[in-house]
Amino acid sequence: MNDFTYHAPTSLDDALAALRGAEGGTLIAGGQSLLPIMKLNLAAPTDVVSLAGVAGLDGISDDGDSVTVGAMCTHAQVAGSATVQGRIPALAAMADGIGDAQVRNAGTIGGSLAHNDPAADYPAACVALGATIVTDRREIASDDYFQGMFMTALEDDEIITAVRFPVPARAAYAKFANPASKYAVAGVMVADGPAGVRVAVTGASGDGVFRMAAMEDALRGSFSAEAVAGIGVSSDGMLSDTAAGAEYRAHLVAVMAKRAVEACG
């Protein structure tokens, strides 16, 4: 790891100033993705701006028809939140299945979304639930936010402050995890909510999260496992690695989608 300047701002303005003043600065939230790549010298920022002490990025609130999660909430906080468990249990369960206990206690929703790992779980939840990504300067719909592997709509100096999830009528997440890394090989969030019936898939595609239109259509006709059971998933564009080749991954997407629908009850 190379030497870098560490900043610990307490306000968004100070964080933005530190980031803008750095030659090659980066934000750090939970550090669960950034620190490993820094240790491998795959990232060598000149400045690291911590969001840990920035006011206003924490907390989970019930806003009636939506739940707002502060960007610096850890996965464990989301999983353990009575509000999330009560209003969007699928989101709490999804957060409880991220990585391992250490990751869940350090990693944050804002950090995960800013990084947009194609095998992360949150992108599927955001797209399926029709979440809104709130930043220091605007609100971005999930449909516009995710722009491919490790790519988002965020500007270079933009900071996520919160994520607003509309409360669905029903939703469930089914994940097939990589046995080694526990990242999603195929993670499917199915939701029936204000944004309509949505089926969002993470972990499977090299382009990151995507929606399964054919399944959504079928579910609009009949919200049942049988409705999606026969719908094949193409292996075109699927990721392929040691644990799962493209064909197997495509198959797992179909199985996980069916199981998520079943879990919606």
């Binding site: 990589n178 046995p179 080694a180 890394s181 690695d241 040691t242 644990a243």
Partner: peptide, 23 residues
Amino acid sequence: LLEECVYQDDGQLETGSYMNYTM
């Protein structure tokens, strides 16, 4: 059930970390 060391044809170790070598 879990562990498998895999080399690519060019001799690069494919399962070179806990990301894909399953203990």
